[in-house]
């Protein structure tokens, strides 16, 4: 069961690597949300308490339904339908995705410290792959909304690593983590909305008004005179 879930997770993030349309990426995120929720419930079935139940269901609801809904709502209001010409072309990013998948499986299998008991290597490699996918999306995609999706995938990956010891975490902390991720993405959504209204584009590539890199020529600037 766990292996199938981790494979499915890997496939969805591969899709994310390759997809150029934001709508598809959101669907992938929905899929990941459901998969993770089920994995959490399945994994902790041994000692199912009310708390773990609520956490499992709430993670499905939040990551599977509410957040994607919010993202689509923002998608419609801001006219950024397509993720056009990111830094790394879609073909090459897919290729990198496969490489990352290989790397994370390699790391998961021979990082054989005592994770065997808590996290099956398959799930651990999927989690690592999700984290890399999240990072990659944030770094290479230009549109703000794709960066939010990247962040969400990153959180999913981290959540996946935490699956194993989910039951040991007290209820409040687990719910707190869930709530934080939700509010985080929610806030990013509002900001994309504001950015769209202020900049009438959501292309983070053109966000470089705040910089220090104008290398003022040391020789001619006025201050240099009075430094001597």
């Amino acid at each position: 069961m766990i292996n199938t879930i981790s494979i499915l997770l890997a496939i969805t993030s591969l899709f994310l690597f390759g997809s150029s349309r934001v709508r598809i990426s959101i669907r992938m995120v929905i899929l990941q949300g459901f998969l993770l929720g089920i994995a959490f419930l399945y994994y902790n079935q041994a000692h199912l308490t009310i708390g773990t139940w609520i956490i499992g269901v709430s993670s499905i609801v939040l990551k599977g339904i509410v957040l994607p809904w919010l993202l689509t709502f923002v998608l419609h209001r801001s006219r950024a339908k397509l993720e056009i010409e990111p830094y790394v072309g879609f073909g090459t990013s897919l290729f990198i995705g496969v490489l990352l998948l290989g790397f994370s499986t390699y790391v998961a299998w021979n990082l054989a410290i005592n994770t065997a008991r808590t996290i099956p290597p398959a799930l651990f490699s999927a989690a690592l792959f999700l984290i890399f996918c999240g990072m990659f999306l944030i770094v290479t995609r230009k549109k703000a909304i794709t960066q939010t999706i990247g962040y969400l995938v990153l959180e999913n990956g981290v959540f996946a690593t935490g699956l194993g010891i989910g039951h040991e975490f007290p209820f409040i902390v687990e719910m707190g983590v869930m709530l934080d991720i939700f509010v985080g993405v929610f806030l990013m959504g509002i900001m994309i909305f504001r950015i769209d209204r202020a900049f009438d584009h959501t292309d983070t590539h053109r966000f470089n008004e705040l910089l220090d890199s104008i290398a003022t020529e040391p020789a001619d600037s006025a201050e240099m005179e009075n430094i001597q």
């Binding site: 962040y151 990013m188 900001m191 504001r194 983070t204 966000f207 008004e209 705040l210």
Partner: peptide, 12 residues
Amino acid sequence: KRSLEAAWKYIL
């Protein structure tokens, strides 16, 4: 504009 950009970078 500048404070929005700063906030976006901050949260991300």
